[in-house]
Amino acid sequence: MNFSFTEPQQVAADALAHMLARFRDRPVHTESYLSGSALDAELEVSGFHDIGADPDLGAVSAIDLVIQVTRLAPPVEIAASTLVRPRLCPETPRPLALVRSTGPVRFGAEARTALIATADQVMRLHVQPGDFESLTTLFAYPLAKLTDAARARAVPLEAADAPGLLRQYWEIGLAAEITGAMESALKSTIDYVTQRKQFGQPIGAFQAVQHRLAEAAVLLEATRWLTFKAANSGEPADAALAAGYAQDAARRVAYDFHQFHGAMGLTLEHSLHLWTYRLRTLLGELGGAAARFDSAAAAVWGNP
């Protein structure tokens, strides 16, 4: 039992933080979502997507990577490339879009490969122009819809236990992304309630605000450690529990973070919406918390 990074993991985390510094603290002004292309290119060139394959670093460093990148304003496809791709289709071109239903798909329009989860198999699609129709959205990710014609072109992915592995590492990545987005949203909220004064004091000094933010901090820390644990153990039940807990937490905190920013949080000028709308996209992925908890129950106690 050891909650610290190993020395190689710490070195990797520090190197990543150094590399990401220039994407941090940039002024953000956005009408919809930002472009993540520069950040994505930087990660691709430096080979960070393969971090989990290094035996000294493993899934723990992959999770740290996803969390650190998801904290940043530009949205990039990181979780699927870092956690799912090495296990299911390492040679396939990235970015990846993960598709489960007929609804909006994150990173669809920029993906070069789509993995489609059906009831009992994983279908792979080499994405061609026009396969995804971009959606106009307030949400902080580029969202697109897979056309029926493209879906029909997908072929089964030949890999041992592909449906199980896709679900497990999709869940772990989702939980890591929620951790990163919650961290940035909480930080933004703490900054705001510390400087915003009403009734002659910072609103962050009111106990009503403090207690809800303290509870959010507990949810965030729990999400973080459940995610690292799931990555470290490789147990499907741990992955489903982490994802369910994360989505449940995202639902609970997203409202409060907006509430405490007051009307300032409604503006596009303020970056808060990047994090909260990221959380609001993620809390429905894979069918939402109830579906994840159902999946966890099946893994722990068996199917009904």
Partner: peptide
Amino acid sequence: VRQRAAQALAACRAA
């Protein structure tokens, strides 16, 4: 029942 059970289990594991 299954969902609430797993939700409670996640809370135990978090703790």
